[in-house]
Each structure stands twice: as structure tokens, then as C-alpha cells.
């Protein structure tokens, strides 16, 4: 649309012009807030990224975030080890085995949707009551990891389901036609071609684990050291940041932690975006 036609159309319709303005303003605001947040954290945080903050041992002088980074990696691995197999196999059952519209499928849909909507603080209290108190695991890496595994389960199930459903039916028919069994078809043909989609979901799940704090404070606890075993308490990077802020004395360190968290999240998002793009072009 050239400029003159644009002016002519909108001169008689100021209402439409105002709406157009608001639409563009909203998009600018949305992106603006994101950039403001990122730039603000980077400007104030990068200067605070001192070498002491990455010391291997945590003490109250250096307030190192290194143990928290290690704990975050442990937490991600432990949660995924539990959630990914269960989630992927659940999705295989839903897509490949269950009869469409069966009662069990309906119940499962409802429960996964329910799990998806539960706030993380409720997960945290549930984990506290069941794992920390009732099972007596006390504040520990494993209590936190099981809680998070339940939390990310619906995400893994949903993304795997979508990936499985996007595998063309001709794969299945061809495989059955050649005399292959169902199990062989699922593991040798369908799952391998669904891997990119599943991976994109897993990466999103990693993002959720890294960013989680409310579900972990009362399950994994807030000990700032590298955990010796899965029954030790440990704080992830997000919980570390919360601990720094609630003590109120460590704003500089909190800025630095925020920078590391932001960079992690940006990398995770970029990675999942790249895999998703591969899926589309394939």
C-alpha cells in the first residue's frame, strides 16, 4: 500500500487509524518489555560477574554460584531420567495403542491437563508432604527431582504425542505390510523419526527445570554446597537467586546470577527453536 492510498483510506476513518496505532503499539510494547528486561539485567549484571562468584567452594565471603550451577545440572539430569522415559512411553501408548476415544484416554487427557495447570508452589507443598515428610527423604536432590519430574511430565507427553502423530501412517502400513510386529515398528521406525520433536519438548522441559524455584524450596531445600549424594539438600540457580534476594544483602550477586540464568534460558530457547525449524523444513 503506497503512502497516498494509505492516507486516503484512513482520513475518512479515524477509528480504524486509532485501532491500527494501538495494534502496532501493543506489539512494540511486548517486544520493548522483553528487551528492557534483558538489557537492564545485562547492564547491571555483567560488571558483577567476578571470578569469586565461580569459585568451586561456596562460603559467605564469595557467595559463589558454582555449586548452584552444578546442582542445577544434577537436578536437570535426575528429573529428565525419570520424566522422559515415562512421558515418551505414555505418549506411545496414547498414540499407537489406545483406542481413540476410549475411557482411559479421556481420563488421561483430563489428568495431564490438570497436572499442567497446577501452580509450582502446590507441587512444592505436595513434594514436601509426600517425599520430605511422609517418605522421610528430608530436603534432598531426589525429593526435588521427583517433584519436578511430575511437573514436566505433561509437557513431555504432549510434545511426544504431537511428534508421533506427525509421523505419516504410510510408515506404519509399510512396516506392517512387510510383516514387522507392532513393537518393532514403534521402536525401529516411528520413535526414531519422532526424535527431533521429542527433543524439542525435552529442551523446553530443561528450561522449566532451570527456571523453577517455588517447587524446589520446600523439596530440595536451600543448602548452597555441591551435594554429595542424591539424598543431600541442594539449591539450583533459581533458588540460589531467591536466597540471595530474601537475605537482602546481595543485590550485586543477584544481578550476576540473573545474567547467568538469562543466558541459559536464551540458549535453551534458541536450541529448541533451531530443532523446531528443522522439523518444519523437513
Amino acid at each position: 500500500m503506497d503512502m497516498r492510498r494509505f492516507i486516503e483510506t484512513y482520513k475518512k476513518r479515524p477509528g480504524s487509524l486509532a485501532v491500527l496505532f494501538l495494534v502496532i503499539l501493543s506489539a512494540v510494547l511486548t517486544v520493548g518489555v522483553l528487551f528492557a528486561l534483558i538489557i537492564y539485567i545485562l547492564i547491571n549484571g555483567v560488571a558483577n560477574l567476578t571470578p569469586e562468584l565461580f569459585a568451586w567452594e561456596f562460603n559467605t565471603d564469595n557467595m559463589s554460584m558454582m555449586p548452584a550451577i552444578v546442582s542445577t545440572i544434577y537436578m536437570v539430569i535426575l528429573s529428565l531420567v525419570m520424566a522422559v522415559p515415562i512421558g515418551v512411553l505414555s505418549a506411545v501408548y496414547l498414540v499407537e495403542y489406545a483406542k481413540r476415544g476410549s475411557k482411559l484416554v479421556k481420563v488421561m487427557r483430563t489428568t495431564t491437563e490438570t497436572l499442567q495447570g497446577i501452580p509450582s508452589i502446590v507441587y512444592g507443598l505436595f513434594g514436601y508432604i509426600l517425599f520430605v515428610i511422609t517418605l522421610g527423604w528430608s530436603y534432598s536432590l531426589i525429593a526435588g527431582a521427583v517433584t519436578l519430574a511430575i511437573m514436566i511430565l505433561p509437557l513431555i507427553i504432549r510434545t511426544t504425542e504431537e511428534a508421533l502423530m506427525s509421523v505419516p501412517d504410510s510408515y506404519r502400513e509399510g512396516s506392517f505390510g512387510l510383516g514387522a510386529g507392532k513393537l518393532y515398528t514403534v521402536f525401529k521406525l516411528i520413535l526414531p523419526s519422532a526424535v527431533p520433536g521429542i527433543l524439542a519438548g525435552v529442551i523446553l522441559a530443561i528450561g522449566r527445570i532451570v527456571g523453577e524455584s517455588a517447587a524446589l524450596i520446600f523439596t530440595a531445600g536451600t543448602v548452597a554446597q555441591v551435594p554429595g549424594s542424591i539424598f543431600d539438600s541442594a539449591r539450583t540457580l533459581s533458588v540460589h537467586m531467591y536466597a540471595l534476594l530474601s537475605e537482602g544483602l546481595y543485590t550485586d550477586e543477584a544481578y550476576a546470577t540473573a545474567v547467568v540464568l538469562l543466558i541459559l534460558v536464551i540458549m535453551i530457547n534458541a536450541l529448541s527453536g533451531m530443532i523446531a525449524k528443522k522439523l518444519v523444513t523437513r
Binding site: 511486548t30 518489555v33 522483553l34 528486561l37 539485567i41 528450561g207 532451570v210 527456571g211 523453577e212 524455584s213 517455588a214 533459581s238 537467586m241 531467591y242 534476594l245 540473573a258 540464568l261 538469562l262 534460558v265 536464551i266 535453551i268 530457547n269 527453536g273
Partner: peptide, 11 residues
Amino acid sequence: VDLLAGIPSIV
């Protein structure tokens, strides 16, 4: 927009 969804609530 996806990144906006991914930023941790503590941040």
C-alpha cells in the same frame, strides 16, 4: 514471545 515465556519467574 517464546523467550518471554521462558524467563524464570524469579528473574
